[in-house]
Design a protein around this nucleic acid. Structure first.
Length: 308
DNA sequence: GACCCGTGGCT
DNA sequence: TAGCCAAGGGT
């Protein structure tokens, strides 16, 4: 292992060189439009690049600006989000667009603190925007970078008894190693390495540009048993999948028409029965509370649709 | 801090 | 194949 004082610059140099030749050509890179970068960051939250590549252009064509998104019906935004998952993100993205127009003169705030007050923008996304939109040398820590840095710096980044990494230590390490002159490319390079080489399962250490500096190289243990968490659900299917199904069914209802509870129930759960009624009402109540659906009564029947 | 929030590909 | 995993955030 090289001398410690040279190790960091050797690592950054090697990874930046690798990125120059092997970085992925993603449409939101080299993008100047801050709205388009924001949309990409929201879409990429817990969502694989491949899926975003498919749906990103379609969404931008439908909503090309902050204003077009802010002025749109929420139902049309939810429809444009089809296939992305985590539909709450679509609601928060629209709300953020509205807040930016109403309170920030139509422009994205330039500080982590202010960005993080917008709905759907947390610590990671706020830092990502400050770096990727405004070009400032701030670190970024996402699931890829947690994995890469915890493998490169296992002594500085501790783990608890169950093997979970100390995320705060990752932020400190990321801030420490960040090359200020190449912050944008460095952060992108770290994420590309994590996504393509330093993967969670079966990492390709023989193709990694920083194996010589990595104490974990060729020593990644296969993940231990793991405790499968049991999600609340119905007949073994988690409730959130039913939530997604409800929204998907309503997407396919024409215009602003409502669907009756019984029609919806049969499409959401093929073997729907009277015993499921209370449960499904709970699902709908949760969706309405989140703002993902709207309901009204006509006589004794409940009518459901996407929100205005 | 634990739990919840979609979707689909991969091993 | 059943569980893991993916550019996180809100409550």
């Amino acid at each position: 292992m090289p001398a410690p004082q040279h190790r960091q610059s050797r690592i950054t140099g090697a990874l930046l060189r690798w990125y120059r030749r092997n970085g992925r050509a993603l449409p939101w890179r080299r993008e100047n439009d801050q709205y388009r970068i924001l949309v990409s960051e929201i879409m990429l939250q817990q969502t694989q690049v491949r899926r975003v590549l498919e749906l990103y252009p379609r969404f931008l064509k439908r909503f090309p600006t902050f204003r077009s998104l802010a002025n749109a019906r929420t139902s049309s935004v939810i429809r444009a989000w089809r296939g992305m998952g985590y539909n709450n993100r679509a609601l928060r993205l629209q709300q953020t667009a509205r807040t930016i127009l109403q309170q920030h003169d139509g422009k994205l705030p330039g500080t982590v603190e202010t960005l993080q007050q917008l709905p759907g923008i947390g610590r990671y996304t706020a830092h990502a925007l400050v770096c990727f939109v405004f070009g400032e040398p701030v670190p970024v820590v996402d699931t890829n970078i947690i994995r890469v840095l915890s493998r490169l710096f296992p002594r500085a980044i501790s783990r608890d008894r169950s093997g979970k990494v100390n995320v705060e230590a990752v932020w400190t390490a990321a801030r420490s190693i960040l090359p200020r002159q190449n912050a944008y490319r460095w952060n992108q390079a770290l994420m590309d390495l994590g996504a393509t080489i330093c993967t969670s399962f079966n990492p390709q250490c023989d193709r990694c540009p920083v194996t010589a500096f990595c104490p974990s190289a060729f020593r990644i243990k296969k993940r231990s048993p793991g405790t499968k968490k049991v999600e609340p659900g119905r007949e073994g299917i988690p409730n959130r999948l039913y939530r997604g199904k409800v929204v998907e069914v309503l997407r396919n209802v024409n215009g602003r028409r409502f669907l009756s509870f019984s029609h919806l129930a049969k499409q959401v759960k093929p073997n729907y029965g009277e015993r499921d009624k209370r449960w499904l009402r709970g699902i709908l109540h949760g969706l309405e509370r989140d703002g993902l659906i709207a309901t009204k009564r006509r006589g004794s029947t409940l009518l459901v649709s996407l929100p205005e």
